[in-house]
Amino acid sequence: MKTINTCAEFLAYALAIEEEATERYTVFAEQMETTNNPEVAALFREMARLESEHAHRLEVAAEGESLPAIDPWELDFGDEDPPEAVDYSATHYLMTPYQALTLVLKAEQRAVDFFQRVAEGNGNDDMKQLAAEYAAEEREHVEKVAKWRNRYPPPDDNWDDDPDPPNELE
């Protein structure tokens, strides 16, 4: 993983992470709305809202700062998937809230890990303190989501059974 040195660099990374998370949760919410899974849709909507709030708070925090413009592929997370972003291939139209929140949980945990790694890395002290704050905040999220997930039962074995075949369109 590439070293993040300055606060501006860190904020650019953090903003990219939150925006990516917002985009994906929005896409997933739309997927579930389209495939008539309203409970999971609402859950992803809520996640999208939370992430966009984060992104907004970051934008406010970065106001006046000159953030580096980083093309998405220049973001370097080591060998890991982008933190806080659930993989596009992970959703399913019959998925249950428990499964959705499990995905969220893993993504949030990756965010904790990422911020923690940056906080323990080689950058300047102001930046490392900022990263530690973000790690702490994400840790709270993890706990919150874990509790949230506990409200739902795990899926049964045949959760993805669909007696009907897929539709033909064109």
Binding site: M32, Y93, M95, L169
Partner: peptide, 22 residues
């Protein structure tokens, strides 16, 4: 312009999990 500025309001008909979302 941000990536989301290039998206329309139309929701894809693709299956959740499809690579095309990516």
């Amino acid at each position: 312009l941000k990536p989301k500025d290039y998206k329309s309001d139309t929701k894809p008909v693709w299956c959740p999990g499809c690579g095309d979302f990516s």
